[in-house]
Write a protein that binds this DNA or RNA. Structure first.
Lengths: 203, 203, 203, 203
DNA sequence: GATGAATGAGCATTCATTCAT
DNA sequence: CATGAATGAATGCTCATTCAT
């Protein structure tokens, strides 16, 4: 079993890696399954053993890559010891933005799917523990000194805004390069958070 | 001249209309150029007289449809007689949202291209008066009783947020159906506007 | 293995044969790949499994047919027992001329590519033992009672002349039909050979 | 008349020049009639007013260019004052070879059509005084101090050899670069001429 | 004569998918 | 499980030719 299962996994990994590489290099439309299997060094039939078609592997990749992004940000957050929900959310977003700025192909690949990839990936793909990211967000909210209403709406709005505006700013430097846009973006995020804060129940 | 040019225009129009219909019906990937010309009743070669390929006509359509949306909203704004920048911007967005809610295929077609399609179409396509939409926005801002800083950043942020969050809400009813999400969305938009308002020059 | 490889070879052969037949029947420009595969009884995709395009298979065919011509001439030479370089070279050329006279379509197909097809095929195509023809020529030269200078120039000149003049004479009967032109051609070939002969170092 | 006929001629000339330029640049197969008319600045229909198809204009061009070559060589011969048939024929061939060496695209274009293009152009195209070239050759032969048998065979053999061997030598530097091959070529030409010389009727 | 919009047959090429080995 | 040869429908695109103006 060990040997065979190992081999199976290795082939699947090879397919994932190669597909990702080709998708960001040549684009999804221009990447044929033959390209993938050829470069991955497996037979054509093998692809169909693990994936339904090109879009199957693509969706799984988007999902996977997005989770990686959030998890890395979350790890860094823990190390940083940042306190306070506002600072924490901005820390996470800033971390992701910085990562993507240094990896434009990845930015282009997940593009505006950021949100869906992160918050709803369970629904789309069958990936095991997909929306543990969402759980982590909820935990951060709970631990804050303030209480919040409509937490999911708040998170959704923040992530959508950051994803969409951030993407354009990073990709096209419009209306401003991301470094110059950041102050505006983070100010807006703070406003959103505040607007969801329950009036402090001063005892 | 009349006769020939008229004919040219008619064929081009036919291609535009048919392509749009097929794109929203079958999707872009599944629409072949043969489908378009066949349904439009012109020869295949004629398509290539006017468009470079499928994506050429697609981009021009996205651009065109987006402008239509904004223009219709603007017209309605004029009729409504709404006053005040906050109310005006929200009126426009609300108008577009309502239109798209009644036209899901269109929503799906322009999807997240909404934003950039609208504000940067001049740059991309050679369409004549493309960013007069942007001009109109600027005029609204100017005419307000308040002054604003970084107007383009403000408009960009609003449009990105509305486009991205609105799309998800309308399309997937997540995290809430659009009617329930609207209050949150509009509240955030008001916050963004306020945050760009110059400190009232109290006389 | 046997079965699959056999099948592969059979299909490739079928493509070669059909292509040749069509090329000499309808001409290369008028032969479509669909014609070839249809007549060969294989699927269109199969063609691209073995050849890059129409010109790929054409070049390989020219090369192949030219080699066949030389090899047949060489075999006949061995049987004839002809002695002496002059007589041997003329025997070979005469054999090829006679063969082509009885096979005008082949003459037309390889036309003036005769020469280069034969002597440089190794360089161009990856065909295995392509210029063994050249080797055979060299051997004939070596075995002659005389020595020769600039052997490759001599062979080149002879083959070019025979190929070019012979083609026109056979094809258009200009300035004379080949049978009447032969004496002139062979006389010139003898002159060329003599002019490369080293002054007999009679000891 | 003047004006209209002038215009006609100008368009035809433009088509010739443009076609030639494109043929040597992109190759004949890759040059479409649309390319020609577009670059020539005339309407598509106009092409068909003057030529039957692409191959019509091509043949006329080959013929025309070849004649130019021979005529230029002949003019230079006259100026040089070279005497004796051997020297004269070699002068002509040398002149043409040198011209083509400085104009590889032209060499490639007329390639092996050189010979027939020159000597049979009358037959093929309806060009007015095409084989006056042939006449000139005959005159040179007549004026020589020696008499020759089978003059047309002699000229044919020389031109075929020079055309075919020269082309390969110039184009591929095989078996030798043209400058090194020239001595062999010219030696062979002299042998051919001598072999057609009537035994001097020493009275 | 000249134009150039329109045509549509024709063709090369791709590629997802299957299935015998 | 894995393979990769074979398939052939699907499709984008070209281009010579026509003909109304």
């Amino acid at each position: 079993m060990g040997k065979i299962d190992e081999n199976k996994k290795r082939k699947k990994e090879a397919l994932y890696n190669t597909a990702y590489e080709l998708f960001i290099t040549k684009g999804i439309n221009s990447t044929a399954i033959s390209d993938i299997v050829e470069k991955a060094g497996v037979a054509k039939g093998t692809f169909y053993l693990y994936f339904k078609d090109k879009y199957d592997i693509k969706n799984k990749l988007v999902s996977h890559k997005t989770q990686e992004l959030f998890n890395a940000a979350d790890d860094a957050l823990a190390i940083s010891g940042t306190k306070g929900l506002e600072e924490q959310l901005i820390f996470i977003i800033d971390h992701i933005v910085n990562t993507l700025m240094n990896n434009k192909p990845l930015l282009n690949f997940i593009s505006k799917n950021l949100v869906m990839g992160a918050l709803r990936s369970t629904l789309i793909t069958g990936e095991k523990n997909a929306n543990e990211i969402y759980e982590k967000f909820l935990k951060l909210v709970e631990q804050d000194e303030y209480s919040y209403t409509d937490v999911d709406v708040m998170l959704f709005t923040i992530v959508e805004l950051a994803g969409s505006a951030g993407y354009n700013s990073m990709m096209y430097e419009e209306p401003l390069p991301i470094e110059e846009y950041k102050p505006f973006l983070y100010r807006t995020i703070r406003l959103i958070i505040e607007s969801h804060r329950k009036r402090t129940q001063t005892s």
